[in-house]
Design a protein around this nucleic acid. Structure first.
Length: 838
DNA sequence: GTCTAGTCTTTACC
DNA sequence: ACGGGTAAAGACTAGAC
């Protein structure tokens, strides 16, 4: 039997004490395929230097006789091999130890305490990752598989009979198809969303479940495929109200029946990817909890098993063969840095990425719903599934490219953070360097690393407050990554002592560090990543496909995360000195550029980390660009400075408390008339909308007119409006995130008090949510802000004085100060009327 | 009780 | 626990008077 096959989901099982990998995927006709592949797990024993051959043979014999016994199995060493490998760039002799069962790898490694063994490694690599590295059966790539079709065979105890797949093959040979033979692949994606009575998992009943999908091949789907929307699969399952007739609503006798149907429909849709939004933390665990309560088996896996929930910061719901994706988690790591949205709620993210919002529904009437309300509720629920489905469609290329580049299964890559992505990329590419992988740090090691505290980071230049004209902004492309590559900074190339051919880097308080002149595997990989990024960015320019964009972006994110990775305490290749050296050399380079810019006769206005801005002065654009070329000609290694843009005007303000200019707060007016605001309250979500809007209008006016007059008149009008209470309360709501459980706060700030109030009213309160409140007037003398706050729905008058003195004036006074309008003197009433008195 | 320096907290920039 | 450091700013808090 021979077939073409694309791996989507991976798992493994034991048979007769040995491990087999089970891959679920599709063939070229879209049939669901299971491929079973044998796999011999192994780990490494790195030997001490200078051992004689005989001694090594001796050690191998000892290793080969090792075994671990447990209740269910005996795990033995199958065989050993002696290899010349590298560990952290240095040549080593290492014994490759093949074992019968992966699960006992750690226990076996622990038993290996021979004095001749320097280190034991790679016993901590997950089996599926190990399999992918070793056999190169990469996710979401097409393969030709030949082997024996299993038909309820005794082998593997008839595992194929229990799997809901079209065909199950025991692989003999798996060969990757050539690039030109690779097919396109689109998964059958089904989005789901639930509505429940209570917020707490499993506490209330599940009222309804919505499903939305669109058949990528437009055939073979039953269900609600109407002629108006061919291939569309949309349903709302409920048991709460059966009198409302809507074509997509199906009503059941009870919650249990609804849950059973949900499972049936997921199977009926022939789902590859079951997608939710927050579904790791809410929908899926809720479904499981209610299924348990109703004694229904939530048998979503192709093996008929219920989803399992792995422990972790957030539990991840997983089942065999149907990849559960919590889109929120992927969007958080892959998209959030590009999004303007202030929260990553489905409503905001869909609004920004799709231009579509959630439907409105008033949850306060949940207890007293009429038929019309139920109808709205069903539509609301369906819309959530629809938005989730559309977001999944939009993210597919990115998820696919992440999976292909990191060479990790979709399920993992959709949840991994960037540090894990960097690490997976390294692990899957170590073989090219003949490297044995470093181990994952254990708890004690992590504590040690964290105890080291911070090292010096970026340089930020203090600007001179003022309004400037004709500004140039230059920045380094992927600065930290190119510093890492240029200076060869990594764990394997680092030395504490000066060695021949090593470069010295001054880390200031952290002393000195030295880095080898021989290229290390980490900088080498990073250079390759930067190269791929350039290549695919250029290809995208010629041929703008979503796939090329996703590919180029994935490499960009990888490159940008590499610096953070080396400084991250949980990294296998953690190297504080390499990270500190990266920051130090970045500082050195930007300071050198600043000096050169000054020497050329320009006035430098600002610099932060990898960028520098200066006044064009009398010089033309061509002169500036020629100067840039000159700077680049002398730039070390792969470092490159590029023109960010020319700007018409810029404003820098002073800090609130001191005279000095504020860093990380400025605004620019581009030549096309666009205003770019950085750091100001306008871009901070914890200021009320009125203050933000007033400030942004003042900034825009000042930048466009070049003076403060119009802006000043505008602010006077707003203050008047506020004093006469002509401003709606909605514009005065302050939002702040609850970052931890209420009990953990040392300082009780207004937003904590607001959260306490919400809790008392029975509203859902949990870490991560945005708390809303406003500051109200109170008859009594209450000094603290937190004593005066009210929830948005609470009756009350807003405190005009507070909003004037703590929101509006602070937001604009530093801007007017640039024009020598000193609001502080006004406020004291010494010279003129204060803004507050208008 | 009032003032102030320091701490806690959130959110931004790169 | 699931990149990093730098920075501004408000509100609370503790200690001095």
């Amino acid at each position: 039997m021979e077939l073409e096959f694309i791996p989507i989901d991976y798992d493994y099982f034991d048979w007769h004490g040995q491990n087999y990998v089970l891959i679920i995927g599709r063939d070229e006709k879209g049939k669901r395929v299971c491929v079973i592949d044998s796999f011999k797990p192994f780990f490494w024993a790195i030997l001490k230097e200078g051992l004689f051959e005989k001694k090594i043979e001796n050690i191998r014999r000892i290793i080969e006789n090792l075994k671990v016994e447990s209740e269910s199995r005996i795990t033995k060493v199958l065989k050993t091999e002696l290899h010349d490998k590298k560990f952290l760039g240095k040549p080593v002799k290492a014994v490759k130890i093949f074992i019968t069962n992966y699960k006992d790898g750690h226990a076996l490694a622990d038993k290996l305490d021979l004095p001749e063994i320097e280190k034991r490694r790679e016993y901590d690599i997950p089996l599926v990752s190990r399999y992918i590295m070793d056999k190169k059966v990469l996710p979401l790539n097409w393969y030709k598989v030949s082997g024996e079709v299993l038909n309820n065979s005794e082998e593997f105890d008839g595992i194929d009979a229990g799997l809901e797949v079209d065909i199950c093959v025991k692989a003999e040979k798996i060969e990757k198809l050539k690039a030109e033979e690779q097919h396109d692949f689109k998964p059958r994606t089904l989005a789901f969303d639930i509505e429940a009575e209570e917020f707490e998992i499993g506490k209330g009943e599940i009222l309804m479940i919505s499903l939305y999908g669109q058949n990528p091949h437009k055939s073979g789907i039953s269900g609600n495929s109407s002629s108006k929307e061919p291939g569309v699969y949309k349903k709302v399952l409920t048991w709460k109200n059966c009198s409302v007739k809507q074509d997509f609503v199906e009503c059941f006798k009870n919650e249990a029946e609804m849950l059973e149907k949900f499972v049936e429909y997921v199977k009926q849709y022939n789902t590859d990817m079951l997608v939710g939004y927050f579904s790791d933390g809410f929908d899926l665990p809720y479904l499981r909890a209610r299924a348990e309560k109703n004694k229904v088996k939530l048998s979503l896996g192709l093996d008929g098993k219920q989803p399992t929930f792995a422990r972790g910061r957030i539990t991840s719901g997983k089942m065999l063969g149907i990849v559960h994706i919590d889109l929120f988690r992927f969007i958080e790591t892959a998209y959030s840095q590009y999004l303007q949205s202030e929260t990553l709620s489905l409503d905001e993210v869909a609004g920004e990425l799709l231009g579509e919002k959630k439907k409105e529904f008033d949850f306060s009437k949940l207890g007293k719903m009429k038929d019309k309300d139920w109808k709205d509720f069903f539509a609301y629920n369906l819309q959530d599934a629809l938005l989730t489905w559309k977001l999944a469609e939009k993210s597919w290329n990115d998820m696919q490219e992440f999976s292909r580049i990191m060479q990790e299964p979709l399920f993992d890559v959709a949840r991994d953070r960037m540090a894990a992505n960097v690490e997976n990329y390294i692990l899957h590419n170590l073989e090219k360097f003949n490297e044995i992988a470093e181990k994952r740090p254990l708890h004690d090691e992590i504590e040690k690393r964290r105890a080291k505290g911070k090292y010096a980071g970026a340089f930020v230049l203090q600007p001179e407050p003022g309004l400037y004209e004709n500004i140039v902004m230059l920045d380094f492309t992927s600065m930290y990554a190119s510093v890492t590559v240029t200076y060869n900074l990594s764990l394997a190339t680092f030395s504490e002592k000066k060695e021949k051919g090593f470069t010295e880097v001054d880390l200031g308080e952290d002393g000195k560090a030295y880095f080898s002149g021989d290229k290390g595997f980490f900088p080498a990989m990073l250079e390759e990543i930067i190269g791929f990024r350039k290549k695919y960015k250029a290809e995208y320019k010629k041929n703008s496909t979503a796939l090329l964009k996703a590919r180029s972006n994935a490499y960009k994110l990888l490159a940008n995360a590499s610096y953070g990775y080396q400084g991250f305490f949980g990294a296998r290749y953690y190297c504080r000195q390499a990270a500190a050296a990266t920051a130090a050399l970045a500082r050195k380079n930007i300071l050198e550029v600043i000096e050169k810019v000054k020497k050329e006769g320009y006035r430098v206005t600002y610099a932060d980390t990898d960028s520098v801005s200066f006044l064009q002065g009398e010089k033309g654009k061509k002169e500036v660009l020629d100067f840039l070329k000159e700077l680049n000609a002398k730039m070390p290694g792969i470092m490159e400075l590029e023109l960010e843009d020319f700007y018409k005007r810029a404003i820098f303000v002073s800090k609130r408390t001191k005279q000095a200019g504020a860093k990380k707060k400025y605004a620019l007016l581009s030549e096309s008339g666009k205003v770019k605001i950085r750091g100001f309250e306008t871009v901070r979500r914890d200021w009320c909308n009125l203050a933000r809007e007033v400030q942004s209008k003042v900034i825009a006016s000042v930048l466009e007119k070049g003076n403060h007059e119009e802006a000043f008149d505008y602010v006077k009008k707003i203050i008047q409006k506020l004093k006469t209470r002509a401003i709606a309360k909605e514009n005065l709501i302050i939002r702040s995130q609850l970052t931890k459980p209420i009990s953990e706060y040392k300082a009780i700030s207004p937003h904590v008090t607001a959260a306490e109030k919400m809790l008392k009213l029975g509203m859902p309160v949990r870490p991560g949510m945005l708390v809303e409140y406003y500051v109200a007037e109170s008859g009594e003398k209450k000094k603290l802000v937190r004593e005066r706050i009210k929830l948005p729905d609470e009756e009350g008058k807003y405190d005009v004085k507070y909003y004037l003195e703590h929101q509006i004036i602070p937001a604009v006074e530093n801007i007017f100060e640039v024009f020598n309008i000193k609001l502080l003197e006004f406020a004291e009433g010494k010279k003129q009327k204060s803004l507050g008195e208008f």
